[in-house]
Write a protein that binds this DNA or RNA. Structure first.
Lengths: 203, 203
DNA sequence: CTTGCAATGTGGTCGGTGTAAACATACTAT
DNA sequence: ATAGTATGTTTACACCGACCACATTGCAAG
């Protein structure tokens, strides 16, 4: 941290690349990130990144992994202090959408096709699945507590996940703009209420 | 149509470009489509496409517009012969997801960030909104028929759209693979049932 | 402390891309 | 027939991902 570009070796180029990539993600978008530009902005040769990432895709995958970690933390924080399973589901949904809005390009990277699913970047798929398993556990809990209907938890989890992911995607890609009806957090809550209503036991 | 590359002028290059682009979409994916490759495969110079599309983005936008048109047709066909609004909603959802699966790259192009929303390619936004308006009309109909709860139709439409779009996105990007639970049409119907349940009047 | 090896960074290169300008050809309307 | 416009070509620039051979450095074994 003290000395900068004096020495031949950068010292912590891998981390620096990821950090700079996050910046570029916000400014130029995820598809147009260029390894060369990263290297340039870090005052390093254009071939240097390849010492730390075999491929551009691997750099992006590492970025996505960071994103999943962030998302996991955010959702964990949101879950604290929720009493009912329905509340948990809504809280998780809100956290999810907030995250997507706040880090829209990172979100696109995480769930978009840029990083193909067959890219078995171990850390990535592992940390990616955790999010889904968390939803399943909320649902399972709610079912056994009699709060949700008796049904395959995977069905409910898929539904909830799809709903939230759909909301997030449409929001960050600005597809709701056609309705003039600006999509507020209130709108979000109403949409989440619909899915909860569809899952809840109507006792 | 009769003579092919003999003459200096191609004759119908614009349409040929779009057709070839559809092919490339399937084979190389939407992000890696290259105008030069299209031109090459059509036996035409690399600058020729620019006589018909100001920009690569405009070519893709035209492609997306074709996609919206296809989607519109498919959903219209699916709606025929549905009695209740709930049936319509499910039928539209199925058509939507089927379309996404069948034309996954086109779908990504239509709803992804490749074509920014600010790109006011008139024909595109217009035909894109039709799909959403169709959903709203189904919902409105269902509400006034007493089949759905009394609520702002936009809320229900947003929810349904987000759900279906989420299912489609996660499916084509293979994000359900973590559950081993191969996502069949049956799974789809169950997920759609959840959203319908969330909207239906529980009289 | 030396010496050697593995990790890291450099320069240059190859093939590819989008896109623009200047030019050539063909169709169309007068 | 001819002018004008639409279309296609050539050439060029700037950028990119990815690789190679080489330079430099840090570390670890002797």
């Amino acid at each position: 941290m003290s000395n900068s570009q004096q020495s031949y070796h950068h010292g912590d180029l891998k981390r620096a690349l990821l950090a700079e990539a996050r910046n570029h993600l916000k400014t130029v978008g995820p598809e147009k990130i260029s390894l060369r530009a990263l290297a340039r902005d870090l005052g390093v040769s254009q071939a240097a990144p390849y010492r730390h990432f075999t491929d551009k895709t691997h750099l992006l995958a590492a970025l996505a992994a960071e994103g999943f970690s962030l998302l996991h933390d955010a959702s964990k924080k949101a879950l604290a202090g929720c009493d009912t399973s329905a509340q948990r589901l809504v809280a998780a949904g809100r956290a999810y959408v907030s995250f997507a809005r706040q880090h829209s390009d990172l979100y696109r990277l995480m769930f978009g096709p840029t990083i193909p699913a067959d890219c078995n970047y171990e850390a990535l798929t592992e940390v990616g699945n955790r999010a889904f398993l968390a939803i399943i556990s909320i649902v399972t809990e709610g079912i056994s507590a009699g709060e949700f209907r008796e049904e395959d938890p995977i069905v409910f989890a898929n539904s909830a996940w799809a709903m939230v992911h759909g909301l997030a995607s449409l929001l960050i890609d600005d597809r709701f703009s056609c309705t003039e009806h600006e999509f507020t957090m209130d709108e979000l809550d109403k949409a989440l209420a619909v899915i909860v209503e569809g899952i809840r036991a109507n006792a």
